[in-house]
Design a protein around this nucleic acid. Sequence first.
DNA 1: ATATATTCGGAGCGGTGCTCCGTTTTTCAA
DNA 2: TTGAAAAACGGAGCACCGCTCCGAATATAT
Lengths: 180, 180
Amino acid sequence: MRADAKKNYDRLLAIAREAVIEHGADASLRDIARRAEVGMGTLYRHFPTREALLEALLSTDLDALTEKAKQLQATTSPADALATWFREGVAFTRTFGGVVDLMASALDDHDSALHASCTAVRSAGALLLERAQEAGAARTDIDGIDLFALMASLAWLGDQPAFASRVDRLSETIANTILA
Amino acid sequence: MRADAKKNYDRLLAIAREAVIEHGADASLRDIARRAEVGMGTLYRHFPTREALLEALLSTDLDALTEKAKQLQATTSPADALATWFREGVAFTRTFGGVVDLMASALDDHDSALHASCTAVRSAGALLLERAQEAGAARTDIDGIDLFALMASLAWLGDQPAFASRVDRLSETIANTILA
DNA sequence: ATATATTCGGAGCGGTGCTCCGTTTTTCAA
DNA sequence: TTGAAAAACGGAGCACCGCTCCGAATATAT
């Protein structure tokens, strides 16, 4: 990558982070380019789709979530590992608003730039769930996709001002249901 | 209301119903006006906001949901009434896509045209929940807003193609958790 | 038939996502 | 150091969006 290209890439990513924190996942791309003092062409060359931009923003966090699952699996009891990771997964989306919609649609869209990261998270969670199920610590009538669905729907609740304050308690309730 | 005005009003509502079923709650208003062979001014005079248009589309269904709660309260056991109504509430959003987001934000936006209908639904559900709680049939660590939140999040799941097929089963699970 | 009150329609404004291409800048070999 | 090839740049332009505003058209009441 050419030196000036890398400079613009980094600058775009930094500005995009601010913009998405402030305005959510559908922040204006034109505004991001403007604030980064860069043309639209430059933005689109580096990030051909909105998903590509968000993937660059989220990938480290998503990978960390995947990694966290493996750590918990190695160090904690099946039930605690699942419960802790579930809470963490719901809390994750708190930084950026409206991201969970894109993650949900990325799951069954193989062409989405977010597809790989999201399926990795889902798989990591599925492993935790299966281990808990084998240990008799989690109900057996749900699977990894259900787990992701429940996490996503709670994350969506967190995006709704009317419900945000109740997410922590409801997450606890749902987590206990899964472990029941 | 003048005769031609009523004609346009009805026509707009009919076309809007088709458009929202086809494209969801953020269907193009310009396109609705075009298909109804009406100018933008006409559309905005009859429905000053998008919420107003959706309110006109949803009000009968929302009122029916509110009414259904009262019927169930009068005819069915507390537990069954709550469970049945919960399922019905989740299923309701299936007709139009993306409506649940607007309903959620309408809850704490007193100026939204959907505010009244949505709070009515919430209150009706809250009564069912309280009756079940008093009968010892429902857990007591959630309230009417939590109930609405859970219904809304499951409705949101139904809007996500990746999860839609699991909504019925997960609704059952959550309903049982509430009754537990 | 006329006058008044209503309703109509669409041009226009500022915004969006996205593409395309002439211009500029970097790089690297001669 | 220089010059040409390669790479990246930026923004004008297109089609769409929500929304407003107002002169023209139309229905109603007298």
